[in-house]
Amino acid sequence: MAAGGDHGSPDSYRSPLASRYASPEMCFVFSDRYKFRTWRQLWLWLAEAEQTLGLPITDEQIQEMKSNLENIDFKMAAEEEKRLRHDVMAHVHTFGHCCPKAAGIIHLGATSCYVGDNTDLIILRNALDLLLPKLARVISRLADFAKERASLPTLGFTHFQPAQLTTVGKRCCLWIQDLCMDLQNLKRVRDDLRFRGVKGTTGTQASFLQLFEGDDHKVEQLDKMVTEKAGFKRAFIITGQTYTRKVDIEVLSVLASLGASVHKICTDIRLLANLKEMEEPFEKQQIGSSAMPYKRNPMRSERCCSLARHLMTLVMDPLQTASVQWFERTLDDSANRRICLAEAFLTADTILNTLQNISEGLVVYPKVIERRIRQELPFMATENIIMAMVKAGGSRQDCHEKIRVLSQQAASVVKQEGGDNDLIERIQVDAYFSPIHSQLDHLLDPSSFTGRASQQVQRFLEEEVYPLLKPYESVMKVKAELCL
């Protein structure tokens, strides 16, 4: 049975990233139509530049190519590739079939990587351009969430054990800070992308030097003109047959890092959902379990974690691919890159769409948070109580021993009897502590235990987050809708 299948058929496997999760716009960027249309555009740009620099290419040939950029006979191309065992030459023939007058000058002087690699770089750039505003929107939604809850005390956790208090907004800023680093890295790697350009079979530009009869300047002009037509500021000066596969490492490393950030955020949300302090959106008709109707599973956060793990592992592909590119190139890269580049971007696209949807509907339960604080705060307040007693004339050592005994009794009630923490009640009825009984409410005010959390939130948002989001103001209103 021949390899390949009808990918629109229910009898043929289709990647869930495309069929179930990723956005239509990201799927289109990695589609065959987008790819092969870009090949034709690159052939047109090459012909236009070659004509401008004096090669015998007519206006009629150029116009014929322009008129057929979208006229792609995919069936013919597939048949040609089956016959020739070469995808680029299959599309040269297919393009030439609908451009008979231009057929002889299509791909003039070029090698397969002229269309293959340059198209990949265009796709990487455009895919990054799709991700950047999506990530900015996630940051914006979380920034709104953090600002609104900047002063809401909550129990902090280290080692997932109760620690000092923080605020809900401050905790959210930990998430935002990681995503801001990801946004900066995505922008950097996007701006650092260079075009492969017009380089020939081993990167020496020998074929173009021959076409222009040894004119170095025209060869350099050709490279520059096509690079500018493709919208790049610069091209690699040095290439082998391909652009260095280190570029793929750079791009997928940034995406993998984004995956790590999203995994951490969504894990926190899942843990908070278990504590009943916070939940992701839950639709009115949504079913959490087929057997347990009360369940409210954090399905979206779980999906993000599941896909983020996949995204983090994909960076190993370009690392290994770059390491086995012998001399000017081997074909070890080809099949692998067809999979890992598309999957990385479709996965990143999915987790950003999902995280935006989550961040637009996060639900906080202040009463649950308050109750958990009441359970733990008495123990945390013991040092403040000791200091207040010393100020009232008591002995630190005597007070410490009193607190120690009462704390152990209260802990026994919590752990052995399943009761509430009654340390404060014990202190309130103990005559030894009568000098500070009137101060206990103040000493137990949760806001006095959150330090500068709310001020940190305000400063972080104003100095770091809002300036970073400013270039994306025009796209901030787009909502994230999930079908599944």
Rank of each mutant, 00 (worst) to 15 (best):
D144N: 13
P471F: 15
Y472F: 12
G288I: 05
A308L: 06
D59E: 12
K391Q: 15
Y21N: 01
L69F: 11
L193S: 06
A291L: 02
Y114C: 04
R452V: 09
V219E: 00
V226C: 08
R309E: 05
D430Y: 04
S112E: 00
H442V: 15
D216S: 12
C266I: 06
R309T: 09
A3R: 15
L341K: 11
A291N: 03
K75C: 09
L44H: 07
T227F: 06
P16Q: 15
T154W: 07
R396L: 06
D216R: 05
A344P: 07
Q41W: 14
E328I: 05
D191F: 08
I287N: 03
Q221D: 13
R404Q: 08
V413K: 15
L128S: 10
V189S: 10
R300H: 12
I358F: 09
A230M: 01
K415Q: 02
Q456R: 04
Y466M: 15
A22Q: 08
K66H: 10
R125E: 00
F232K: 03
D422F: 09
L174A: 14
A256R: 04
D120W: 07
K295V: 01
L53Q: 09
V324P: 03
H159E: 00
A308W: 01
C399T: 14
K75A: 14
G104D: 09
F212C: 07
V92C: 11
K66R: 13
S301T: 14
Q164C: 08
V247C: 11
P467Y: 08
E343M: 05
H86N: 00
V168P: 04
Q205I: 03
R40S: 00
A273S: 13
L377G: 05
I436G: 05
Y13A: 13
I57P: 01
H91Q: 15
T166C: 11
R296N: 10
L444Q: 11
Y472D: 12
L108Y: 09
L142R: 01
I373A: 07
P24K: 14
E401Q: 13
R329W: 04
L444R: 02
C399W: 05
N185G: 13
S412P: 06
E343C: 01
L186S: 09
D144H: 13
A22G: 10
Q356K: 03
L484M: 15
Q285K: 15
E383T: 03
T242M: 03
T111W: 01
Q397G: 08
D87V: 00
Y13G: 08
Y114D: 06
A381S: 07
P471W: 15
G116F: 05
I62Q: 06
L209K: 08
M389A: 00
V413F: 09
S407M: 01
K224N: 08
D182A: 01
Q161M: 00
A322F: 10
R426K: 10
N336D: 07
S140V: 15
L108V: 09
G197H: 02
N71W: 10
R337H: 03
F208R: 02
K229L: 11
L131E: 15
N357S: 15
R374G: 08
R303K: 04
A256E: 15
K82W: 11
I123R: 03
A49G: 08
K479Y: 15
V254P: 08
R196K: 10
P16H: 15
E64Q: 11
V168C: 09
T450Y: 02
Y432E: 09
G116A: 13
L468S: 15
I385V: 12
S290M: 02
N357G: 10
V198M: 15
T119A: 13
H437Q: 10
L211E: 03
L377V: 07
A348M: 12
H107I: 00
F433H: 07
E25L: 08
A163T: 02
N297R: 03
D268M: 05
G200Q: 08
R337N: 03
I269M: 07
A2I: 10
R371W: 05
Q41E: 12
D73R: 06
K147G: 10
M299F: 05
F145A: 04
Q241N: 01
D192R: 08
L46C: 07
V363I: 13
L423Q: 06
K295T: 04
A335L: 02
E70F: 14
V226I: 09
A143F: 07
N336E: 02
C27E: 15
M387I: 08
D59A: 10
S207R: 02
Q458H: 12
Y21L: 00
Q210W: 05
A2V: 04
K187D: 11
G418T: 05
S434T: 13
T354V: 15
K134A: 11
I57H: 07
L423C: 02
T167K: 02
P293A: 15
I105A: 11
V189Q: 15
E48W: 03
R20H: 01
A206G: 14
A90W: 00
E64F: 06
R194G: 09
A90Y: 04
T321L: 10
A102S: 11
G169P: 02
G393C: 06
H217A: 13
Y294A: 03
E328T: 03
S474W: 15
I386W: 06
G8C: 15
V88W: 00
F236L: 11
S323P: 05
I72Q: 09
A322R: 04
A3G: 10
C99R: 01
T350V: 15
K284R: 13
V405L: 15
Q320D: 06
T201G: 07
T321P: 04
K224T: 10
R20M: 01
E48C: 06
T52I: 10
L131T: 12
D182R: 04
H7G: 07
G200H: 03
A273C: 14
T111R: 00
E417Y: 09
Q325S: 14
H310K: 11
C304R: 02
I57K: 01
W39S: 08
Y432R: 08
R85A: 02
V457I: 15
L84E: 14
G419R: 15
G96K: 01
R234G: 11
M292A: 01
T450N: 03
L128N: 13
V262Q: 04
D317Y: 00
G5M: 15
I287V: 07
